[in-house]
Design a protein around this nucleic acid. Sequence first.
DNA 1: GTGCCATCAAGTTG
DNA 2: CCAACTTGATGGCA
Length: 680
Amino acid sequence: MGSLLPFQDLNLLPDAPSSATGAIALKVPKLEPKTEPFDETFASQLHEPQTHQLQEAQVPQDPFFPNLSPNSQQQQLALFSEQGFGHSPISQTSAMSSDENNVYSEFHRISELFRTAFSKQNGGALPDSHPDSRAIVPVPEQNQVAEVIIPRKRTQRSAELVRVTNLGIEDERYFRNVVRRTRMTFDSLRVLSAAEEEKKQGLGLGTRRMRGDLRASSVMKDRDLWLNRDKRIVGSIPGVYIGDLFFFRMELCVVGLHGQVQAGIDYVPASQSSNGEPIATSVIVSGGYEDDEDAGDVIIYTGHGGQNKFNKQCCHQKLEGGNLALERSMLYGIEVRVIRGIKYPGSITANAKVYVYDGLYRIMDCWFDVGKSGFGVYKYKLVRIDGQPEMGSSVLKFATSLRTKPLALRPVGYLSLDISRQKENYPVLLFNNIDSDQEPLYYDYLVRTVFPPFAYHQSGNGTGCECTSSCAEDCFCAMKNGGEFAYDSNGLLLRGKPVVFECGPFCRCPPQCRNRVTQHGLKNRLEVFRSMETGWGVRSLDLIHAGAFICEYTGVVLTREQAHVISMNGDNLVYPQRFSDRWAEWGDLSQIFADYVRPAYPPVPPLDFAIDVSKMRNVACYMTHSSSPNVMVQFVLYDHNNLMFPHLMLFAMENIPPLRELSLDYGVAEEWTPKLSICN
DNA sequence: GTGCCATCAAGTTG
DNA sequence: CCAACTTGATGGCA
C-alpha cells in the first residue's frame, strides 16, 4: 500500500483483488450514530444552514482514508481497465489493390458498416438477450457479404468508489492517450453518422433526425468503449485535464466525467453504496435552474427536480436521488467534479454550448430555500478547492475579451499585435512578459512554404477536377483521396491519410469548394508567447476544434544536397519525414468495426527534403515538442501534384481550449529540442 | 437476498 | 417551439 504502482503492472493484474494491486477501495464507513435525515422539516427553518448539527455528529474526516489526514493521501490508485486501448491489430486480410480502392468508395464502405451495425443494434433479427450481435458486413474485395462478430456488451456501471492520486508522468500520458483516442472515436462516429443521415435524406429515405452524438455513444457502449465504468471515480478523472472542452453531454458519459445523460448530478446510488447512502461524484452547472448563482470559485448550486417540462419550477424539490447524494457528500467532505455548460459562439453544436471541466469543489453548505418561483429548492454552496489550475471557463471568458482588446487586458508584454504584418488572415500576436527576448520579431514571416521550381515542373500538370459548382463524391479529386473527401462540411479532417489532395489551380471548382481547406490559411488568432518552461510556445486565442486545420509549417525547402551543405553551418533544419505518423491515428475505427482495414492508399515516396527556417518562418516553428501532442502533421497537396513535395499542414488532434499551449510530436528523442533555440 | 423488468425522471439537440 | 431521444435509479415482483 502506498507505493507508486506503474500502470504496466496493473495491466498484468486486471482481476486481482484490490489489496494485491495497491488499489484502494473506498469504503464508506457505517454511520454511528446515524444522523437525522435531511427532510422537509427544514423548510420551516429557511435560510438557516443546517449543517453544523450534522458536522458535529460526524467528524469531518475522510471516510475513505480514515487513518490519514486529508493532506497525506499519497496513495496511488488502482485498477483501470484496459478498455478502449487494447492495441487492436489491424487485420491483415487481403489488402485491396490501389485500383480497386479508387473504384470502391471508402466512405461508402464505412457507411455500410455503420448502417448494418445500427440495424442490428436497434433490434434487427436477433433477440436482445443474444450475447453477440452478428452484423452483416460487406467485404468489398470479394463483393460479397461476410459475417463478422461484433461484441455486444452493455455492462452496468460499477459502484466501487475510488480516488486517483499522484499519477506518474507515464501514467498521465497513458490515460491522456486513452481519453483522446476514445474521444476521437466518438467524433469519427458522430460525424460519420451525420453524413450517413444526410446522404439518406438526399435519397429521400431518412426521416429521422440526426443525433450523431447519441448514435456514436450507443455504438461505443455496445463495444464496451466507454471509459471508467468499472470504477466510480471520486475526484479527477485520469486523462481529463481542467479546461478540457466537450460539445456533447454524451461525450461526458463516454469518458466517464459525468455519467448522467440529462441529470445534472451524478452519484453512486444508495442501493449500490457500501453503507446504503448515495455519494455524489460530479455536477454540471448548466444554467437550467434560475436559483443558481455562479461566482466562479463559489457556486450556489440548486438541486434537481421539481420542474415541469418547460424548465419552470412547479413544485417542491425532495431530498432524494442526486440531492441527497450531494448532502451526503458534504457530510463526508467528499469533493465533486464541476462541469460548466456555457454558451460559446465558437461551438459546433446548434445550441452553441460547450461543456468545460472546471475542477474539484467541496460542498460547504446545504440548505432548503424558497426559490424565485416560490417553490422549495435545495441549495448547495460549492467552493473550489485551492491549488488547481485556472478554471477553464474563466480562461474561455478571458480569451474572448482578449480577442477584442488585448492591450486593455494585458497592458504589458505584447511586442507585436501581428508578427505576420497582415500576411495572414488573422493576426499572429507576440507576447513576452517574462524576459527581454524579442527574437521572433527579427525574422521574415513566410506564409507559405517555398518549394524549388522543379517541384512544380516535375508533377503532372492539369490533373484537376471539372466540377463547376461544388465538388461531389464522384469528383476526380475525391477519387484521388480514395473515393472520399478528407474534410467534412465544416472543414474538419475526417480521416488522416498519407497525403490529402485538395482541389487547386488545375480544378474548375470555386474557391469555396469544401475540398479546399488548408490553402485558405489561418482560421484562428494565434499567439507566440514566452514561458519559463518551454521558451517560446504557441497558443490560440480561439477554441480550436479537433480535426481543424491550424496552420502550415513553413520554411524554405532544401534538397538533400543543399541541406547537407547548410547543416554543416549548424543551422536549424526540419526534416518532414521525421514527424511521427500521427495522421494514422486520426479517424481510425478499427476498434468499432471488426474488419476495419485502413484503406490501401497509393504509396507515398519517402520525403527527401528539409525545411530551412533559419531566415524565413511562420508561427509553426515556435511550437513545443511533446510526445503526447495536441497537434499533428498531415501532408497536403494543392498547388502542384508532386508527391515528393507536400505541404506540412498542422491539424488539431483534440479540442484545444483557448490559451492552451499547442504541441507537436517532432518524432525525435526527447533530448533533442526541435523547437528553435532562439536565444543563441 | 437476488435478478429481471417496467416505470420514471433527468435536459439536450436539431 | 417541440419532438425525439437515452441512461441510470428505483421499486415491485417472481
